[in-house]
Design a protein around this nucleic acid. Structure first.
Length: 297
DNA sequence: AATTCGCCCTGTCGGC
DNA sequence: TGCCGACAGGGCGAAT
């Protein structure tokens, strides 16, 4: 579900609430959502630790805990992290608005059958993990082990970090071959894009999602570099894109769906030239593009 | 080494 | 109405 702008929005929202707080108890309601060690050991090992920092790498969230432990959270396709305040009232259930199609909780949500983990904090508040499709996970590691994790080690450049220059991007692309959108999705050259922002970046750069990367010249590589940055920054500025499940930690949704130019717009006129946008399959993912503005080079 | 393809899940929607 | 397949913000492991 969440791509970089959504994960970063969640990080910022949660950070303000949980920094310096103590995890008094963990309650894993669906054991399989904890990886790496048995859920019972996760619960006992996390207990009593203080949250010292909340960081993000690609689409991973890293809670830095006292005693040199790190809680790694990946939200998968439908994961949500929310902050539950003991003094606020729960809004009822998740409601789908017939008008916008958005799933809404006009406030913090009560524990329901998809709420798979509760991280209880001091003062009776808690961080709640909810995940309908169960593709996400939580993992507790020694901080020293984190860097050695294969899933983190093979990640490419952080597109919103200071190291993301055109020169670095060029080096990271190297002699890569294959379809452009597949490259953007696989996190090996640059991280943080998923199905929405890969389509948006291709559109912004005027490149066909099936464009062979090895046949892109310097000018088009530069356009791609600029597009990746622009698309992610805009989305972050709008608090992310809400289509279905994505929520900020306080339950509110993002605003970027209003600004999408490609994703979700199959059959609608291209914002640039008016040609109907087409939908195809690339890397098994639905892909929308403008057949006129985004031709194979 | 690098790329593609099932598969892990639940929920929703459209076609018959 | 119900049943069935397709599809949905991701990424891992096996096959090629």
């Amino acid at each position: 579900m969440p791509e970089l702008p959504e994960v970063e929005t969640i990080r910022r929202g949660l950070q303000a609430k949980v920094l310096g707080r103590t995890l008094v108890k963990a309650d894993i309601r669906l054991k399989k959502q904890v990886r790496g060690l048995p859920a019972a050991r996760f619960e006992s090992q996390i207990k009593g630790r203080r949250i010292e920092a909340l960081e993000r790498r690609a689409k991973f969230l890293l809670f830095r805990l006292s005693g040199d432990k790190t809680l790694l959270v990946h939200l998968g396709m439908s994961g949500q992290l929310s902050y539950w305040d003991h003094s606020r009232e729960d809004s009822g259930r998740f409601v789908v608005s017939p008008l916008t199609g958005l799933q809404r909780t006009p406030g913090q949500h009560a524990v329901d059958k998809h709420t798979h983990a509760l991280l209880h904090l001091d003062r009776g508040d808690r961080v709640q993990y909810r995940d309908t499709r169960q593709f996400g996970y939580l993992r507790l590691l020694d901080t020293a082990q984190v860097e050695a994790l294969p899933s983190l080690r093979r990640l490419g450049l952080e597109p919103l970090g200071p190291g993301f220059t055109f020169e670095a991007f060029e080096r990271s692309l190297g002699a890569r071959r294959g379809m452009l959108k597949a490259l953007l999705l696989n996190q090996s050259a640059v991280v943080g894009l998923g199905n929405i922002y890969a389509d948006e970046a291709c559109f912004e750069a005027g490149l066909h999602p099936r464009q062979p990367v090895e046949r892109l010249g310097p000018a088009r590589r530069r356009a791609l570099f600029a597009a990746v940055t622009a698309v992610l920054e805009q989305a972050l500025g709008k608090g992310g894109t809400t289509f279905r499940d994505y929520r900020q930690p306080d339950g509110s949704h993002g605003l970027n769906q209003e600004s999408l130019k490609a994703y979700g717009r199959a059959g609608l006129p291209c914002p640039r030239c008016g040609t109907p946008m087409r939908k195809i399959l690339v890397s098994q993912r639905g892909t929308v593009f403008c057949p006129r503005c985004q031709r194979l080079k």
